[in-house]
């Protein structure tokens, strides 16, 4: 077999083996990588860090563990920002019946971090309310946008140490009548619920999304049209937000962490536990993308060599 053919027909098992090595080995080492956060991530961070802590935020968690590589890092950063700033929030899910439990597991994880640092854990019902799962995403978001109170009516949550209680008795929802009473809707999603939210909620309150990498391009459309105040895109977005939480925006002299469109400094949480999945998995993404580029180049070099060989043979035959 010629080199051209060999380059074009590398065995699948070898390719898969290399991919496994490339994606798993970087997880065992701390590889510091430079970063230039996207403008959308900077806007997301600034909006999250300048929220008024006295008004609640509506948080939609529409992801499960299938996209935890991206979504969990984003969700954890959002929760860390909320809890460190004392921001009350209301959690709901519309995409998947598993989603509320997955979100609750992340809340518990962040709470464990707080307990380790002798900080007060976030209390269910007092600091955040769980509305649970709504089976029909479009109708639910439509209902929440047009008549929040009636759509949520009858839902109960579990205060710590007490029986299930109507969610409107929670201090989080005490001043909420409509979606306009939330100062922002944050959607952490791996599904179409982001589109439904823009269609139904835009114009009623601010919107910010954290989406998976494949959803980035379609979400950017809404960011460009200013329907979103910011968004975090995939693993790069998770990495951006973790870095911004550590370094702040317009705080130090680094050009990457400056935003000339909004020059006011936004402090992060320097020295706190800001590193998460974004920072840990970003080197893995690097290696996977580098491997992809190499494989595509190999395949194309093989194709070009094969063409040359065949044209030589043709000339020799004449």
């Amino acid at each position: 077999m010629s080199i051209a053919n060999k380059l074009q027909t590398l065995p699948k098992t070898a390719i898969y083996g290399i991919l496994i090595l490339c994606t798993s080995l970087p997880l065992f080492f701390q590889i510091p990588l430079p970063n230039n956060p996207d403008q959308a991530s900077k806007d997301f961070f600034r909006e999250m860090m300048t929220l008024d802590a006295s008004k609640p935020v509506l948080l939609s968690s529409d992801w499960t563990n299938s996209t935890r590589g991206e979504s969990k890092g984003q969700m954890k950063s959002v929760l860390r920002m909320f809890m460190r700033r004392g921001q009350k929030f209301v959690l709901y899910s519309t995409a998947d019946p598993q989603a509320p439990q997955v979100a609750l597991d992340v809340i518990a994880e962040v709470n464990r971090e707080r307990i380790k640092k002798n900080q007060e854990p976030y209390k269910r019902f007092e600091d955040y309310v769980v509305l649970g799962f709504f089976p029909n995403a479009e109708a639910a978001i439509n209902g929440l946008a047009n008549d929040f109170k009636a759509t949520v009516k009858g839902r109960k949550d579990f205060p710590v140490g007490k029986e299930a209680t109507d969610v409107f008795q929670s201090p989080v929802l005490k001043d909420v009548d409509s979606i306009k009473d939330f100062q922002m809707v944050v959607v952490v999603t791996a599904s179409k619920t982001s589109n439904f939210t823009v269609e139904r909620v835009y114009g009623k309150t601010k919107l910010a999304f954290a989406v998976t990498g494949v959803m980035g391009p379609e979400t950017k459309v809404y960011y460009q049209s200013k329907q979103l105040v910011g968004f975090v895109n995939g693993l790069k977005g998770a990495f951006d937000i973790e870095q911004l939480m550590e370094k702040g925006l317009n705080v130090d002299s680094s050009a990457s962490f400056r935003d000339d469109t909004h020059p006011a400094p936004v402090e992060g949480f320097k020295g706190d536990d800001n590193v998460g999945q974004g920072t840990r998995y970003f080197p893995t993404l690097h290696f996977a993308m580098a491997l992809m580029i190499i494989m595509v180049i190999l395949g194309n070099v093989g194709m070009v060599l094969a063409k040359k060989d065949s044209s030589k043979k043709e000339l020799g035959g004449r």
């Binding site: 590398l10 699948k12 390719i15 898969y16 991919l19 994606t23 499960t64 563990n65 299938s66 996209t67 935890r68 590589g69 598993q98 996977a288 491997l291 992809m292 494989m295 595509v296 190999l298 395949g299």
Partner: peptide, 17 residues
């Protein structure tokens, strides 16, 4: 759930190549 989704990486790399 996570394992099933991660299989996509193998398909993408193989298809790109």
């Amino acid at each position: 759930d996570a394992a099933m989704f991660s299989i996509i990486a193998f398909f993408i790399l193989s298809a790109a190549y």
